[in-house]
């Protein structure tokens, strides 16, 4: 498996990245950890005549937590997310989810930016970022702009990011309440058969806030407002959880693949979501 030939760039700053993108348009692509893109290039399913490696670009690294906000540079790896004690203290759902992505070697290379930006419905971070209501920061020839994660995904591999834009960072408010990232997969290294990200705030035994998103059950991640609403104000009795699950099942649209047919995926989605809600509630 040998990729087609390409030119390689390793700019030091975003201006350098943008000028290459501008010059080569569709023929150029940025690469973070490369663990989605390189296999596709090796299989010659992605042709990238101009490859821009972001590893040296200033300002794309680092985890910052201040004033109730978390900022993850686009080049922050899954391993860094897992190892960051401060992050685990304020947003433990990130570690719980990152540990369920791929395997140790891939987590050393795979980045948050790459995971959210490429639009692969199998990736875990997009759904998680919708759950925690993250914002994606883009920079392009027209300057900087932000897009909420919940408005970023249009279809498989189609996102709000323009071709000449680069995703530079992900920010999110420090999540509140109990959390759970529940994922069913066939083995380590697999994408989810179904995965659910849940954050729930409990006050006096009542659900004050809920945020629910699921992964790999549609051509985009699925944030379900109706599912969240079904839990609000309830004590998460069986009827409320059932209503949330029913709402989510109305929003997902899984397709058949080697993991199984649609009926199975829908059923498992419901089971996984229920478990995630119950675990999050138990931690709330």
């Amino acid at each position: 498996m040998i990729p087609a030939a390409f030119e390689y760039y390793r700019p030091k700053d975003l201006a350098g990245v943008l000028s290459i993108l501008e010059e080569h348009g569709d023929d150029a692509r940025v690469m973070a950890g490369g663990h989605s893109l390189i296999p596709m290039m090796k299989l010659r399913m992605a042709e990238v005549p101009h490859l821009i490696d972001l590893q040296d670009v200033d300002g794309l690294h680092g985890i910052d937590i201040s004033n109730g906000q978390i900022r993850l540079g686009a080049m922050v790896t899954q391993a860094e997310i897992i190892d960051h004690e401060g992050l685990a203290a304020v947003a433990p759902i990130l570690r719980e989810a990152a540990l369920q992505i791929a395997d140790p070697q891939v987590r050393y290379m795979g980045t948050i930016g790459g995971n959210v930006a490429n639009g692969d419905p199998g990736n875990d971070m997009p759904g998680l970022m919708q759950c925690v209501n993250a914002t994606f920061h883009l920079i392009g020839p027209e300057g900087e702009r932000s897009v909420p994660a919940r408005a970023f995904y249009e279809a498989a591999y189609m996102t709000a990011r323009e071709d000449e834009e680069v995703l530079t960072a992900v920010t999110l408010p420090v999540p509140d309440g109990g959390y759970a990232y529940e994922k069913q997969k066939r083995k380590i290294g697999d994408y989810a058969t179904a995965a659910a990200a849940v954050q729930i705030v409990k006050e006096d035994g009542v659900c004050k806030a809920a945020s629910i998103a699921m992964t790999n059950l549609s051509d985009t991640p699925v944030f379900s407002e109706d599912a969240c609403a079904a839990l609000l104000g309830t004590a998460l009795d069986d009827a409320a959880v059932k209503a949330a699950v029913t709402a989510m099942l109305g929003d997902i649209d899984p397709s058949e693949d080697n993991r199984g047919p649609v009926a199975f995926k829908k059923h498992v989605a419901g089971v996984i979501l229920r478990r995630a809600i119950e675990r999050a509630w138990s931690r709330a």
């Binding site: 498996m1 390189i38 070697q105 050393y108």
Partner: peptide, 22 residues
Amino acid sequence: ETSHCGACTVTINGKSVKSCTM
């Protein structure tokens, strides 16, 4: 060759990496 098996694992700047995917 698709970063699943780890036979190509090396350590790069202190990280375990699959060298078939770099």
